[in-house]
């Protein structure tokens, strides 16, 4: 790193370490927040698991869900998680344009995911199988919808982040925030693994 040179004085080094530790603390704090969000999703998963058979004469997961459709959503999100990682790598290498491009690709994939999810919701509601239909559907819409809400927040954050990078460049603050944003995005992919497995795949097996 360019900061470490033989002529570096100690006060400067101290300050650098202090700043570095401060950023590390913020990133750690964000990790703690993500852990609390895991518990939030766990509560929703528990509720879904308890209510999964309470269809009250309405459709069950097996009749409602299309596995190829869910797979398409999964692949979009998984790829976006990967490209988000690449954006972080580009940012750490101080390549501004590359960072922005990867973020735009990530944003596009995330938006694709969101549109797929919302059109699935729309289809169910149009068929009369809305969240009012049964306990199972309430749990389904809420669990998947909460994830979708997080995705929406992530996309909004990504827009703000891209504007920030575009205007102010890859400074210390934007690097710190890119790290947190990428953590957030990977985390949403991790949650989706369980939604894919428990809601869609298990749902198909329950037929």
């Amino acid at each position: 790193m360019s900061e470490i040179s033989p002529g570096l004085d100690l006060a400067k080094a101290d300050q650098l370490i202090e700043r570095h530790e401060k950023d590390a603390t913020t990133v750690f704090g964000f990790w703690v927040y993500l852990m609390t969000d895991c518990v939030l999703f766990a509560s929703l998963f528990a509720t879904f698991a308890v209510l999964r058979n309470n269809t009250f004469g309405g459709p069950s997961g097996a009749t409602l869900f299309s596995l190829p459709y869910a797979l398409a959503e999964t692949l979009a999100l998984l790829t976006s998680s990967f490209t988000c990682g690449l954006a972080l790598l580009a940012a750490q290498a101080k390549r501004k344009t590359q960072t922005l491009v990867w973020f735009m690709i990530t944003f596009g994939l995330g938006l694709t995911f969101l549109v797929l999810e919302l059109s699935e919701f729309h289809k169910f509601v149009a068929m009369g199988d809305s969240w009012r239909r049964s306990g199972f559907l309430s749990a389904y819409f809420t669990l998947v919808g909460t994830h979708g809400l997080h995705i929406t927040i992530g996309l909004l954050w990504m827009v703000v982040m891209m504007l920030f990078i575009y205007k102010r460049g890859l400074n210390r603050l934007s690097l710190k925030r890119i790290r947190m944003l990428s953590m957030f995005w990977h985390f949403l992919d991790v949650v989706w693994i369980f939604i894919f497995t428990i809601v869609y795949l298990f749902g198909a097996l329950h037929a």
Partner: peptide, 18 residues
């Protein structure tokens, strides 16, 4: 709140709530 405002059925006594 979702039960009360959007008519969901998490904890209602009918419609498969628990």
């Amino acid at each position: 709140a979702l039960d009360r405002t959007l008519g969901m059925h998490f904890f209602t006594s009918g419609h498969g709530g628990n």
